[in-house]
Simulated assay, not measured.
Amino acid sequence: MSSRTMLGKASTLVGAAAALTIAASGIATASTTISPAAATPVTATSSGLSFVTTGGLELYCTSVSGSGTTPAAPGNVNSGTGGININIASVGLSGCDLEGVPATITTSGSWALNVNADSGSPMGSIKIPNGGAHVVAGSCVIDVTASTAGPVPYNNTTHTVTANNTGTVNFTSNGGSASCPAAGAGTAKMTGALKFNSTPGITVTP
């Protein structure tokens, strides 16, 4: 065997070993930590949240609120992928209208903010449980089914998740009026900023 062939094979082996090392390092860094490492009360607020359906109809709420608690140690650390859920209970949406028609929204179940740093940067997703919201606007009735809106960047300075025409919110509608989504299953995109108030503020790191 020539020295050139041996050198080529050696280079290939070294390259493969390096690739495996890089891949293993990438897997190892996929983790999430929420600080502070304590059960911290959180209040979630929004000054405006809109859901625009695939048909172009908008459900808009001027105020959103909710409360929850961050998981205490060791639950504030996930050494694998998938991030950490902060459960948000007693979610309230008020000042709502569907295409100008006043809307009443009743929420149920435990909503959650999932935060993760799997990519190295903090991200957040809003998780809505099946049957998480019941909307009545005139003769229009909409039920929100299991949905995850995001992931979108989580800002460690302002402690906000900002959704901009992102994520998918699933629902079913009775199609009761011209300002109501078509009867049956549909989807909507969410836009708005959801702020998480706590002392100290929540930070998300790898």
Rank of each mutant, 00 (worst) to 15 (best):
E99R: 00
A39M: 02
N114H: 09
S198F: 07
G176T: 09
T203S: 14
T32D: 09
S110A: 14
D97S: 15
T12L: 15
G120M: 09
K127Y: 02
G150M: 03
T191G: 01
N87Q: 14
T172Y: 04
G82A: 08
S65F: 03
M123R: 15
N174F: 00
S139H: 03
G26H: 10
M190P: 02
I142R: 01
D97T: 05
S110R: 08
N116W: 13
A133F: 00
N78S: 04
A103L: 07
L194N: 04
N130T: 02
A39I: 00
P102G: 14
G80R: 06
A183F: 01
V52D: 04
H134Y: 14
M123N: 11
L98Y: 10
S147M: 01
G201K: 09
T157E: 09
A188N: 08
G15I: 07
A38M: 12
P181V: 05
I202E: 11
A193R: 12
G56I: 02
V136T: 14
T203H: 03
G109F: 00
T104Q: 09
G131N: 09
N170G: 06
H159Y: 10
G55S: 09
P71F: 05
S47D: 13
T199E: 09
A178L: 15
S139V: 13
G124H: 13
Y154V: 08
G15T: 10
S31Q: 15
G120D: 08
G184S: 07
A28H: 11
S139M: 14
L113F: 02
